[in-house]
Design a binder for these strands. Structure first.
Lengths: 173, 173
DNA sequence: GCATTACTGAAACACTCGTGTCAGTGGAGG
DNA sequence: CCTCCACTGACACGAGTGTTTCAGTAATGC
């Protein structure tokens, strides 16, 4: 049950890590940037790990909101790509990749399970968008795994090169 | 022109970061683990950034060695995937992903350009494997971008879940 | 009015960090 | 022999880390 001040500061911290990265954030610069103090952050979030967990959950909320609004008809992949490739979302997606990589390198700590959770979230959405008769077959599983891989790989490419047209033509395939 | 001792320590440090990650490595634990000292590491690699650069180059050498030996005929994607999915290579690939993410978050420093460089390396290999008549067309570019995306996305999935069969069936398409 | 609660500030603690200083080794080449 | 040079050890410096202690303030509920 977060207090008003807590969600307010979390939101500010979230905006901060979107541009500064989450992996090597430290309390004093963060607190200074959002007009708070380490004392308060520690009071509200218990520890730095607690804050990181809260930020990760915040980022995941953005992701889940997307997946919720994406619908289930055909053309999901195209709609997902449209969202992924929007320049506005780039900081969020860089943050996402950072958390993904980190959760693989350091399976303990606040990052734990992030990568796996996000794979499952997306696979479930793609599953829901499949025609009913393939949804529970091995082919259906392979197909949505492939769609997910294509989206994720294309995202990696786009984040590194910024060449939206080339990557788009690959996703359209 | 690295000295014998330098390459020896670099190799040991490389083995160390493969299991401990590269993003938040620090000199004292690293030096202790490989039987050296911070003094010596700094003497041989000038600075921590220099060491990280050397390690990144070392990892890239592994990658380029793969790409060199992969050949150009049809079936490149399958051969690449075989290499990517080999359990032995998992530490290297996790390190690779870590460096990739980092170079996006922090475009300066020793990581600079890593993500972009690796995209180009792989695209070039896939290009060489394409039939000559599509190699320089827009369709060829889109096709290899798509192949790369599929491989990279599948790799992300595999690193997070470890479910080799499902991901393999997706790569096979 | 009063006590409880939510929040905040200043300062310190016990680290770890990368790096610099100063002093040596040990062996190879003249 | 003696000089040069690659390498190494011990230690300190200044800055930054997460966290704690002790002290408040302002508002809320009884």
């Amino acid at each position: 049950m977060p207090s008003a001040r807590e969600t307010e500061l979390l939101e500010a911290a979230y905006r901060y890590v979107l541009t500064h990265g989450l992996a090597d954030v430290s309390l004093r610069p963060l607190a200074a940037a959002i007009g708070s103090s380490t004392r308060v952050l520690l009071y509200l979030f218990e520890s730095k790990d607690g804050l990181v967990r809260a930020l990760l959950a915040r980022a995941r909320a953005d992701e889940l909101a997307l997946l919720d609004g994406i619908g289930t008809g055909p053309g999901v992949v195209e709609r997902l790509w449209e969202w992924l490739s929007a320049p506005t979302h780039r900081p969020l997606l860089t943050l996402w990749l950072e958390a993904y990589a980190r959760s693989l390198v350091e399976p303990d700590g606040p990052w734990a399970g992030f990568a796996r959770a996000t794979v499952e979230d997306w696979l479930e959405v793609l599953r829901a968008a499949q025609p009913e008769d393939v949804r529970d077959t091995a082919e259906g599983l392979a197909a949505r795994t492939r769609e997910l891989a294509l989206l994720r790989g294309a995202l990696l490419d786009l984040l590194a090169t910024g060449e939206a047209e080339r990557v788009l033509s690959a996703v359209r395939g």
